Computed example of a mutant assay.
Amino acid sequence: MRILGIDPGLRITGFGIIDKAGGRLSYVSSGCIRTPAGELPSRLKSIMDHLNEIIAEHRPEQVAVEQVFVNVNPQSTLMLGQARGAAICTAVLNDLAVAEYTALQVKQAVVGQGHADKEQVQEMVKRLLNLAGSPGADAADALACAICHAHGGLGLGKISTAGYRMKKGRLV
């Protein structure tokens, strides 16, 4: 199964593609979509156009997208949600199944704890996919999202976070 992971962002959208064969994961491709400065509609179109190219070239079977978290700035959250919506629409228009994961689920699946920092995620993605070097932060987050999906949304300890919420740093 080929999985496209997406870490949405209005300025930079990370993407990562992995193959899953049995319990083995292998790296296919990753990178960043950088949108040009300008009006929102043209930036969203840029995300959609680039994702269409990536989907056409790599032919993923499923897509995993990181869910939006609420920022201190509501305007930033709204903009991020629109970039995420553009990514989901692109996948759906290409007849791909879309799964959504919280940052907590992604970090738990890759690092083993939900409050890992970016460097820990990058290092574990590097190790899990047997890469020569660490991918950039946005590409690593997208690859981590794909890895989370490949693990069925389960953490390394096989603890599902579905139906739980965070309270004071713990799943409840």
Rank of each mutant, 00 (worst) to 15 (best):
Q82E: 12
G133Q: 14
L143M: 02
K118C: 03
G133T: 14
A146P: 07
D117P: 01
T77Q: 01
Q75K: 13
I147P: 02
A132W: 07
Q108D: 13
V110G: 01
K158I: 06
A83L: 03
A146G: 11
P60F: 08
E66F: 14
H58C: 03
V65T: 04
V125G: 02
G152S: 12
I147Y: 02
P135K: 08
A109V: 00
H151A: 13
A86D: 06
D138W: 10
I88W: 07
G136L: 11
N73Y: 06
G136P: 03
L80Y: 05
G157C: 12
L96Q: 07
E61A: 14
H149W: 04
G85Y: 03
E100C: 11
V106G: 02
M124V: 00
C89T: 14
S160I: 02
S76D: 10
M124N: 01
V111C: 00
E119R: 14
N130R: 12
S134H: 09
M79W: 07
V98R: 06
C148D: 02
K107C: 00
A64Q: 04
T102W: 05
K126T: 10
C148I: 03
F69G: 04
E61S: 13
E57M: 10
K118Q: 05
H115I: 05
E61N: 15
C148R: 01
M79S: 11
F69N: 03
C148W: 03
G155T: 00
E119Y: 11
E57A: 13
G81Q: 04
V106R: 04
E119I: 15
V106N: 03
D138L: 08
V110H: 00
A132S: 13
A91M: 05
A144Q: 09
A99Q: 15
G152P: 13
A140S: 15
C145Q: 09
E119M: 11
P74V: 15
A144M: 05
L154N: 08
H149A: 06
E100K: 05
A99C: 15
L131W: 06
L154Q: 06
A99R: 10
C145F: 08
R59V: 14
N130P: 10
V65S: 02
A116W: 00
Q75T: 14
N73D: 08
L93T: 12
H115N: 14
E119H: 11
G153P: 04
A132K: 14
